[in-house]
Every structure is written in C-alpha cells, then in structure tokens.
Amino acid sequence: MNRGIVLTLLSLLMGMLVCCEDYKDCNSPVDTSLGIRFYRQTHDTDRDTTLPGLTAYGIGRADSLLAKRLPTSSLFVPLRQDQDTTAFFLGPDSTRRTGDTLTLAYTRTLHFISSGCGFTTYYQLDTVYSTRHFIDSLAVPQKKIVTTHATNVKIYY
C-alpha cells in the first residue's frame, strides 16, 4: 500500500483521539424512584397481585396523581429530595374512597453521574410503615434506592 495512504489513515486515527466531544449528552439513567410491588400472601407463598383500580399520590400533592384508578401490580414513585421523609396515599380499589398512607424515612446522598446528566439523589431507606386499612404487611427487600429500578418495598394485601 502507498505510504501516503498509510500515513493519512494513521493521521485520521490520531485525529480521532483529539476529536470533539459533547459534554452535554446524558446517556446514563438518572431516575431513582422507589419501586413498590403488590402481593397477596397465601399459604406462606408470595403471589403477585394486580390492584384493580389503584389511586396513588404523594401526601401534599393530591392534585397530581401517580396512579389514577388503573389496574396496577407495581409502581415507581419519586421520593422528596428536600426532606428525609415522604408519604404516599395508596387507594387499592376505585370503588372505595379510603386507602392507606405509606410513609418512608430515609437518608439522602447526592451522587454525581456526568457533566451531561449532572447529579441524582441516592436514598437509603431507614423506616417504612403504613396504616392498615387494606394493607396487611410490608417488607423491604432492597433498602438502597439507586438507578436500577429494583423493587424496594413489597406491600401485602
């Protein structure tokens, strides 16, 4: 092969090393919502269940529903980044107006992702409790809330 072609190819390759980059691009997940999954316990066995008409909203944000009377088996809800506690209303059945309040206490850590994505907030759950109108019990299989979209809280009806 002609030496000139080789040199040009080599130069282009080296040119790529110093080539431009867009530091504003965000290609990483940043969402750190709390994962909730609904179960029904029968004979010591967990069974996924779908709530027929779940209504969910953050306490203080009743004007903005996270779930609006929809059949739902799992839900991802955002925790407050400015406080160490967040509470949610969970109404399992659209035919009834009552529901339960799920309260979560946690510690927050600011986590840097990239120049394009900026920061996100990681959470470590400390305490999870609820009223027991419809909810039977709670389990917390994953206390750490990061960008993996894991199930953090199991709710048994």
């Binding site: 080296m14 040119g15 790529m16 431009c20 867009d22």
Partner: peptide, 17 residues
Amino acid sequence: YTIKPALLAGVFLGLSL
C-alpha cells in the same frame, strides 16, 4: 461532531508527519 474535526486534525497531523 466527528468527521469534520477528525479530517481537520488528520490533515494537520498528516502534514506534520
């Protein structure tokens, strides 16, 4: 973002080489 600057850098480096 890739081809134009790479060509510029390539020409620059090719001449120097």
